[in-house]
Computed example of a mutant assay.
Amino acid sequence: MTNFYSAVEARRSMYAISKEQTVSDERIQEVVEFAVKHAPTAFNSQSGRAVVLLGEQHDELWDLTKDTLREIVPADRFGPTEEKMAMFKAGHGTVLFFEDEAVVKGLQDSFPTYADNFPLWSMQSSGMLQYIVWTALEQEGFGATLQHYNPLIDEKVRTKWNLPENWKLMSQMPFGKPVAPAGDKEFQPINERVKVFK
């Protein structure tokens, strides 16, 4: 099995993570920058954006998210939510993924025939970027999950880190050194999911 296949297979949702580093923060930055640079995008639009939060900045994101959810989740049912926020905060960092809506709008204006498709293609590009980062972080010894607390936290995130209005938050990826293995994963029959015609 090649290294690529091994990386694809090893990438899993890892919820039990710690703040312990497996590589330097500089290496984490290199990984994310590489992914943003090389992730495929429709019309080479390069619409993906990423914010890497480390240390106290990472902690503040999950405190902010917890406070936001406390406003909408009933107090008597908040325990599991609080535990989940603590689990994410226990990690070393978080990557926030965005799409630049100004880029998408510019493509819609320039290519009106495809206008309805550009938001969809933007989401597909973002998914590929997220997958590249997730798999690369796994290769560096980290475990991660993909979370979606947007749009609930969008404005607070934009204000806290002074981000452009046209950056649309797509997902949050908390990561850290795994402290427990991923659970078993069941697979549906592959012959029901892939058809080959010759």
Rank of each mutant, 00 (worst) to 15 (best):
T2M: 06
T2W: 01
N3V: 11
F4T: 13
Y5P: 01
S6M: 07
S6H: 14
S6A: 10
E9K: 14
E9Y: 08
M14Q: 13
M14K: 12
Y15D: 07
A16D: 11
S18P: 02
Q21N: 10
T22A: 08
V23K: 13
S24V: 05
D25N: 15
D25I: 10
D25A: 10
E26M: 09
R27K: 14
Q29K: 12
Q29C: 13
Q29F: 11
E30H: 09
E33M: 04
F34P: 00
A35F: 02
V36N: 06
V36I: 12
H38P: 02
H38Y: 15
H38F: 05
A39V: 01
Q46C: 01
G48S: 15
G48T: 12
R49E: 08
V51S: 04
V52I: 15
V52T: 09
E56H: 12
E56R: 09
E56S: 10
H58D: 09
E60R: 11
E60F: 06
L61M: 14
L61N: 04
W62A: 10
L64Q: 02
E71V: 01
E71Q: 15
E71S: 12
V73L: 04
R77G: 10
G79D: 12
P80H: 05
E82Q: 06
E82P: 03
M85S: 07
M85H: 05
M85R: 08
M87V: 08
F88H: 10
F88S: 13
K89V: 02
A90G: 03
G91Y: 08
G91N: 09
H92Y: 03
T94N: 05
T94V: 08
V95Q: 13
L96W: 06
F97E: 05
E99C: 01
D100A: 02
D100T: 07
V104R: 05
V104L: 07
K105V: 15
K105G: 00
L107P: 01
F111I: 14
Y114M: 13
D116H: 08
N117R: 13
N117F: 15
F118L: 11
L120K: 00
L120Y: 13
Q124K: 13
S126R: 07
M128L: 11
M128N: 05
M128K: 02
L129V: 03
Q130D: 09
Q130K: 07
Q130R: 11
I132G: 02
V133K: 15
A136M: 14
L137Q: 12
L137K: 10
L137R: 06
L137C: 06
E140W: 07
E140A: 14
G141A: 10
G143R: 09
A144P: 00
Q147L: 11
H148Y: 11
Y149D: 03
P151S: 03
P151E: 01
L152M: 15
E155Y: 07
V157A: 14
V157Y: 10
V157K: 14
R158M: 13
W161S: 08
N162H: 14
L163V: 02
W167H: 11
K168L: 09
M170W: 00
Q172A: 04
M173Y: 04
M173H: 09
F175I: 04
G176K: 03
G176A: 01
G176R: 07
P178C: 07
V179L: 08
A180E: 15
K185F: 05
E186M: 08
E186I: 08
F187S: 02
F187P: 00
F187C: 00
P189S: 03
P189N: 00
N191A: 03
R193W: 00
K195I: 02
K195R: 06
K195T: 02
V196L: 14
